[in-house]
Design a protein around this nucleic acid. Structure first.
Length: 857
DNA sequence: CTAGGGTTAG
C-alpha cells in the first residue's frame, strides 16, 4: 500500500547518523572529562541566552566555547535546539544540527527526538524520516510518536497510520501523545474506519478523561473524519476538562463544515462560559465571516482584533487575508493584499493564504505565481498547501509548462508524494485539456483517494472521453472507498457535456440508491444534466420535486428554459425567483440576458441589463455585455451594437467582437465583419475562429478570392479550424462522427439512409443551400459535401438504430450549419420523428417541419 | 524529547 522506495529528493545538509568510529569516541569523552574552569560559566551564560530567545548570541557563545577548546555537552545543545523549535527559528535549529554533527558527540535519543521534531515542524518530512530511520536501537516511543505526528501534519495521513501499525508490531505501547497523533492522522474520510478502531482502543485506556489533546483529536475524528458534527459535539460535551483550545476547535469545525452561524453562537457560549478567546479563536470566527460572506461583520472583527493587539499576528492575519479575498464582491484583492502587506512577519501560511486568495478570487492566477516567486526570494519554504494552490493557478491559466516547473519544485522538496499536490497535478493537466498527461499523473500517484478519482473522472467527462470516464467510475465502485456527492456531480456534468441521457438516468438511479436524493448540489446537477441532454421535461420534474431551492437551482432551470428557446418561461421563472426572495447572481443574469437574445426580446433585455446593477448591485461583466451585443446584433441593430461596444466601461475583449462578427454573418455585413475580425485578431492573433467566421462571411457573399486569402493566411500561421463533429448516444454508447466519416461499422447503412433521405426531402421541397459550402466547386459536388455533414450523419444513424417512440437527440460541438438546420426540419416531417439538436449555443427541437427556434438563431 | 486550534486538491 505504501511505497518506501520513494525517489529521494535532494536535501539540504544531510548530516550523517552512522555510528562513530570507536577510537574517535574515546577521544571525545576524554576531552569532555577535562573540565576547563570556565566551562560551567560559559554553559550557564549560553543557556540563559537561549532561554530568553537570543539565539544568535547563544550560537556565537557556542562557537566561542569551541574555539577555546571547550566541548559543549549534550545538555547545552539540547537547550539550544529546544529554544530554536519553540521560537520557530528552524534555520537556526538546522545550523545547530550541523554544529552538533561536527562536534563528534554521540547523540542520545532525547536529542535525536528533538531533531525529528525540528525537521517535522519545519515541513521537511524527508529529513525527519531519514533521522528516524537511522536511529536503530535508540528509537523509542517518543521517536515513533514524533514521526507519526510528522506524517500526519505533512498531508501523509495513511503513512502516519502505517507507521503506527509498525510501532505496535515493534512492541511499543502507545501513550496519550501517540494516540493524539494517530487519531489526528485518521481524521479524514480515507482513514476514519481505522480511526474508529483506535477510538475503541483509547476509550479503554483512560487517556480520554486525562488528556485534553486526546479529547481534541477525537472531536476531529468525528468532525473531519466522519463529517458528523453532532457526534463531535457530544465528545466535546463529555470532555471532563475544557480549555480555549478545545472550544476553538469546535468553533472552527462548525465554521468549516458549513455551519458558520452555529460557529458564531458557540463563540458567544465560549465567552459567556468564561474562556478567553485568543488569536486562534479570532482567526476561526473571522473565517466563519468569510464563509458567510459578511464583510461588515468581518470588518467589525478586524477592529476588535486591533483592540486586542492581535492585528499583526500571522495567524489572525491569514484569516483576514482570506476573509477580505472571499468577501470582495468585485473579485478585487486590494483589501486582502493590504492586510498581507502590513503583516510584519510572514510565514508559509500567510504566503499561502494570499496566494490562495489570488487563485480562488478568479482571474488573478498570474499574480499568484508572481507572489510565489517573491516568496521563494524571501526564502520561505512552500508546503503542500502552497503547491496545491499554485498548480490550480496553472490549471486555470491552462499553462501546463509553468505547472511542470512548479511541480518540479514540489518534487525537489519531497512534497510531490503528498496527496493534495498529486491531485492538483492531475487537475492541472485535465483543465489544460491534456488528458494523457493527466492520466500519467494519476497513474504515478502513490495513493489514490476519492478526490483523485473524481478529478480524473471529471477530466475525462469534460474532455468528452466518455468510455474512459465510466471505466474509472466502475473502478471507484470496485475500490469500495465510497462514491460521494462530488463523484456524482462530476459524472452528471460529464454525462451532460456528452449528452448521454441514458447514462445520466443510470447515475440518477444510483444516486437515489446511495441516498443523495435530498442533496441540493446533486439535485442542481440533475437539473442541468437533463436540460443539457435535451430533456427539459425531466429537468422541470427534478426542479419541481425538490424540497428547497437555492440560486443555483433557479439559475439552472432558467438557463434550461432559455437554451431550449422558452424565453417567456425563463423570464417568468426569474420573476418567481425574485418573489421568493432569492438574490440573483452574475450567472443568473447571463441566463436571463441570453434568454432575451435567443428570441430577440430587445426591450426586456435592456430592462434587465439596466436593473442588474441598479436593483441587485451586480456589475455587468464582459459576458453580460456580450449577451447584449448578441441581442442587438442578431436582431439586426448592428450599428447600435457597435455604439454599445464603444460605450462599455472597459475594453471589449475577443468574446464581444466574436459575438458581433457572428451577427455580421447572419446579416451579411462584410464591412463591419472585417472590423470585428481585426479586433479579435489584435487580441488573439492565433484564434482560428475569427478567420473561419470571416471566411464564411466572404463565402456566403461569393467573394472566393477573399476566402482564398484567409485560407492562405491561416496556413502560414499553421492555424487549424476546430474539427466539427456530432455525436449521438444509443444503448449507453456514444457514437461520434466527423465530416464524411466512413469508419463507423455501420457506415454503409448510414449512407444508404442518407441517400434515401435526400431523395425524399427534395421531393417535399427541400432545396440544398450550396452557399454554405466554402469550396469553389460544381453545384452537384457541393450537394454531396452537404450530405456529409456530421450532424446529418448522426441523425441518419439515429434513425436506423433507435426506436420510433423516442426523439433523436444529436449533439454538435460547433454551431449547426444553415443547410443542416433546414434539412432537419424536412427530415422531421418525412420521418415523423422529433429531432433534438444541441449545438454549441442552444437547442433546436425539430417537429413536423418546424424548429423551436423559429429560425432565429 | 513527543501533543491539541489557522491554509489544501474535486
Amino acid at each position: 500500500m505504501i511505497s518506501l522506495s520513494l525517489p529521494s529528493p535532494t536535501k539540504s545538509v544531510p548530516p550523517s547518523f552512522k555510528p562513530r568510529n570507536p577510537s574517535r569516541q574515546k577521544t571525545t569523552s576524554s576531552i569532555k572529562t577535562v573540565k576547563h574552569p570556565n566551562f560551567e560559566l560559559f554553559k550557564d551564560r549560553l543557556i540563559r541566552l537561549a532561554n530568553v530567545g537570543h539565539l544568535h548570541q547563544a550560537i556565537s557563545a557556542l562557537d566561542l566555547m569551541t574555539q577555546q577548546g571547550l566541548t559543549p555537552d549534550l545538555i547545552t545543545y539540547s537547550v539550544l535546539l529546544k529554544s530554536c523549535i519553540r521560537t520557530r527559528q528552524f534555520n537556526l535549529g538546522k545550523l545547530v544540527h550541523t554544529k552538533l554533527s561536527e562536534s563528534q558527540l554521540e547523540l542520545d535519543s532525547v536529542l535525536i527526538n528533538s531533531l525529528i521534531s525540528l525537521y517535522s515542524k519545519s515541513g521537511d518530512w524527508v529529513t525527519a524520516n531519514d533521522i528516524f530511520q537511522d536511529m536503530g536501537e535508540r528509537r523509542d516511543l517518543v521517536s515513533w510518536s514524533a514521526m507519526i505526528s510528522c506524517f500526519a501534519h505533512s498531508g501523509m495521513e495513511s503513512r502516519a497510520v502505517s507507521t503506527f501499525i509498525d510501532m505496535l508490531e515493534f512492541g511499543e505501547c502507545p501513550n496519550q501523545f501517540c494516540f493524539a497523533a494517530v487519531i489526528q492522522a485518521c481524521s479524514n474520510s480515507e482513514n476514519a474506519r481505522t480511526g474508529m478502531v483506535v477510538f475503541g482502543f483509547v476509550m479503554k485506556t483512560g487517556y480520554f478523561e486525562s488528556d485534553v489533546c486526546v479529547g481534541c483529536a477525537l472531536v476531529d475524528l468525528f468532525a473531519k473524519g466522519m463529517g458528523d458534527l453532532n457526534s463531535a459535539h457530544k465528545v466535546f460535551d463529555k470532555m471532563p476538562e475544557k480549555n480555549s483550545v478545545s472550544w476553538t476547535l469546535m468553533i472552527t469545525r462548525y465554521s468549516q463544515l458549513g455551519q458558520p452561524k452555529e460557529a458564531m453562537e458557540l463563540f458567544v457560549d465560549m465567552v459567556v462560559s468564561g474562556y478567553m478567546p485568543d488569536r486562534f479563536t479570532f482567526s476561526s470566527i473571522i473565517s466563519a465571516c468569510a464563509e458567510l460572506e459578511q464583510l461588515s461583520l468581518g470588518q467589525q472583527l478586524h477592529s476588535q482584533v486591533v483592540k486586542y493587539r492581535l492585528a499583526f499576528d500571522v495567524c489572525v492575519g491569514c484569516s483576514l487575508v482570506d476573509m477580505y479575498a472571499k468577501c470582495a464582491t468585485d473579485g478585487s484583492m486590494v483589501n486582502s493584499r493590504k492586510v498581507f502587506d502590513l503583516l510584519p512577519d510572514h510565514n508559509v501560511m500567510s504566503w499561502t493564504s494570499v496566494i490562495t486568495g489570488y487563485v480562488q478570487g478568479g482571474g488573478h492566477d498570474k499574480e499568484a505565481i508572481e507572489l510565489y516567486c517573491r516568496m521563494i526570494e524571501d526564502r520561505v519554504s512552500p508546503n503542500h498547501f502552497t503547491f496545491s494552490s499554485l498548480l490550480k493557478a496553472c490549471g486555470n491559466l491552462s499553462d501546463p509548462t509553468a505547472g511542470e516547473q512548479i511541480y518540479t519544485h514540489a518534487v525537489k522538496l519531497g512534497l510531490a508524494s503528498v496527496n493534495c499536490v498529486g491531485n492538483s497535478h492531475i487537475s492541472m493537466y485535465a483543465r489544460s485539456g491534456r488528458m494523457e498527461d493527466a492520466r500519467k499523473a494519476f497513474d504515478i500517484l502513490f495513493e489514490k483517494n476519492l478526490v483523485s478519482y473524481n478529478i480524473i473522472v471529471d477530466g475525462y467527462a469534460k474532455n468528452l472521453y466518455s468510455s474512459e470516464a465510466f471505466e474509472i467510475f466502475n473502478q471507484i465502485e470496485d475500490t469500495g472507498s465510497g462514491v460521494d456527492a462530488f463523484t456524482f456531480a462530476s459524472l452528471l456534468s460529464g454525462a451532460a457535456s456528452i449528452g448521454a441521457v441514458d447514462k445520466g438516468e443510470q447515475i440518477h438511479a444510483r444516486l437515489l440508491k446511495a441516498g443523495f436524493e435530498s442533496n441540493l448540489s446533486i439535485s442542481n446537477a440533475l437539473i442541468s444534466m437533463y436540460s443539457r441532454c435535451g430533456n427539459i421535461e425531466a429537468a422541470i420534474q427534478v426542479f419541481t420535486e425538490m424540497e428547497d431551492w437555492n440560486v443555483v437551482s433557479w439559475t439552472s432551470i432558467i438557463t434550461g428554459f432559455a437554451k431550449h428557446g422558452f424565453a417567456t418561461k425563463a423570464l417568468d421563472m426569474f420573476q418567481e425567483m425574485l418573489e421568493t426572495g432569492i438574490k440573483p447572481n452574475e450567472v443568473t443574469y447571463i441566463a436571463v440576458l441570453s434568454a432575451c437574445s435567443y428570441v430577440g426580446m430587445i426591450n426586456e433585455g435592456w430592462m434587465h441589463f439596466n436593473s442588474m446593477y441598479k436593483d441587485h448591485g451586480i456589475r455587468p461583466r464582459m459576458e453580460h455585455y456580450a449577451c447584449m451585443v448578441d441581442l442587438l446584433g442578431r436582431s439586426g441593430y448592428l450599428e447600435e451594437a457597435v455604439k454599445f461596444i464603444n460605450s462599455m466601461p472597459f475594453t471589449a475583449d475577443a468574446l464581444v467582437w466574436r459575438t458581433l462578427l457572428g451577427a455580421c454573418g447572419v446579416h451579411g455585413n462584410i464591412e463591419l465583419g472585417k472590423h470585428a475580425s481585426e479586433m479579435i485578431i489584435e487580441q488573439e492573433p492565433n484564434d482560428p475562429a475569427a478567420y473561419i467566421l470571416l471566411s464564411n462571411l466572404y463565402a456566403s457573399a461569393g467573394q472566393w478570392e477573399d476566402v482564398m486569402k484567409i485560407r492562405k493566411c491561416m496556413k502560414q500561421k499553421s492555424l487549424v479550424k476546430e474539427a466539427g463533429c456530432s455525436w449521438i448516444e444509443t444503448e449507453n454508447k456514444v457514437h461520434k462522427f466527423h465530416v464524411g466519416e466512413t469508419s463507423h461499422p455501420q457506415a454503409r447503412e448510414i449512407y444508404k439512409e442518407l441517400d434515401q433521405l435526400a431523395l425524399k426531402i427534395k421531393e417535399m421541397g427541400y432545396v440544398p443551400d450550396t452557399n454554405v459550402v466554402l469550396h469553389d466547386v460544381e453545384e452537384e459536388q457541393k450537394e454531396q459535401y452537404l450530405f456529409q455533414h456530421s450532424e446529418k450523419i448522426a441523425v441518419a444513424f439515429g434513425l436506423i438504430s433507435t426506436s420510433k417512440s423516442k426523439p433523436i437527440r444529436v449533439f454538435k460541438n460547433l454551431r449547426v450549419c444553415g443547410d443542416c438546420h433546414n434539412a432537419m426540419k424536412y427530415i422531421s416531417m418525412a420521418t415523423e420523428r422529433e429531432i433534438v439538436l444541441r449545438d454549441s449555443n442552444r437547442f433546436h427541437h425539430f417537429n413536423d417541419g418546424a424548429c423551436s427556434c423559429n429560425d432565429y438563431w
